[in-house]
Amino acid sequence: MVKAFSAYLIFLRAMFGNPIPYRMFLSRVAKECIQVGVDSLFIVCIISIFMGGATCIQLASQLTNPFITKDFIGIAVRNMTISELGPTVIGIVFTGKIGSSMASELGTMRISEQIDALEIMGVNANNYLVLPKIIATVLMYPFLVIIAMFLSIYGGFLSCKWLTSIPPQAYINGLRNAFDAYDVHVAIYKSLVYGFLISSIACYKGFSTKGGSLDVGKSSTSAVTNSGIAILIADLFLVYGLLSHRI
């Protein structure tokens, strides 16, 4: 594990040597932003709406205590969405789509010797192929998380209105009750870290692929698995570091 982590750090350091021309680099970043952000928007929207709706129904089914007001469902959906469901659950889904795609793309380029050809021509393949993917993911993933949080809360509202007996106004009152904007800041901080972890681990696994086409699939699977574990570990430390003053 220590050897693999050291190789990962060396891989990250190699991205900043012998940079490609500025305009070419920006073009690569813009292309990756479209692939990472725009192409992932549909699945993020669908998952967010149904995730918020299911959360609302689940909470509504458990509001049996007469001492708990109906407004609580809005508070619970809002806090769960902003603190965990938005950045973390979407991050796991994002890993399965974007992380596997990055690992497969770079793995295929590695076994087909395209990366070797770039290096022979004097191009820093890490800077040309990897760094734009990481920057694009770090830039676009927070926007996807913001959209996911909004749609998840709205999906909860739709479920509350059409699928439960709880008045929609009670849900809205709960959303407004005791709202702390710092929770949104925490979600953004987490999404920045998750974006970096997802892209860098996926690129590292794809870049270090050895063998044939079968090993590309193994690298893709390993990228998704390791990224998911990294997200959960980072989630624990980020939550403790950012919210420990409330404990």
Rank of each mutant, 00 (worst) to 15 (best):
I147T: 12
L144M: 12
M149F: 06
N177L: 10
T209C: 06
G211A: 12
Y204E: 06
G212L: 09
D180L: 11
T164L: 03
M149S: 07
S208A: 13
T221N: 11
A178T: 03
P167W: 04
T221I: 14
S220I: 11
I153F: 03
I147F: 14
K210A: 04
N177C: 00
N226R: 12
G156D: 11
D183T: 01
I153S: 01
P142D: 05
Q169Y: 08
S227H: 07
V193H: 08
G211P: 00
G156E: 06
V224S: 04
K218V: 09
S208G: 02
G228V: 12
A148S: 15
A148N: 13
L192P: 00
G228M: 15
S227A: 13
T209Y: 06
V216Y: 07
G156H: 08
N226Q: 15
L214Y: 05
A181P: 00
L144K: 06
S227M: 04
V216E: 09
F196A: 14
S220D: 04
L158D: 08
F179T: 05
S220Q: 14
Y154C: 10
S199W: 02
V186Y: 09
G155R: 08
I172D: 00
C160I: 05
R176T: 04
S159D: 02
L175D: 04
L197T: 12
I146Y: 10
T209V: 08
I146E: 03
S152Y: 08
I147S: 07
Q169I: 08
L163A: 07
I153T: 07
I146C: 15
S220L: 09
T164H: 07
G155V: 04
A187F: 09
T164A: 03
T164G: 03
L151E: 04
Y194V: 09
H185Q: 13
L158M: 14
G228T: 13
G156Q: 10
S191H: 01
L175F: 02
Q169A: 05
V193D: 00
G212M: 05
A170F: 01
A170G: 00
T225S: 05
V224Y: 02
V186I: 14
A148E: 06
G228W: 10
T225P: 00
M149P: 00
A178N: 04
G206F: 10
V184S: 01
Y171K: 02
I172V: 14
S222P: 00
N226Y: 10
I198K: 07
G206K: 09
Y194R: 11
D183C: 08
G206T: 10
A223S: 14
S219Y: 07
D180C: 06
A187D: 06
S219R: 14
S152C: 12
I146V: 15
A178W: 01
A202Q: 07
S159H: 13
P142S: 06
M149D: 14
Q169T: 13
L144A: 08
T164F: 04
G212F: 08
V145L: 04
L151C: 02
G174Y: 06
I147V: 15
S213L: 12
L192T: 03
L175Y: 01
Y194M: 13
Q169L: 11
S208F: 03
I188C: 10
P167Q: 05
S219V: 05
A187P: 04
N173Q: 09
R176N: 05
L163W: 13
G206I: 11
L214W: 03
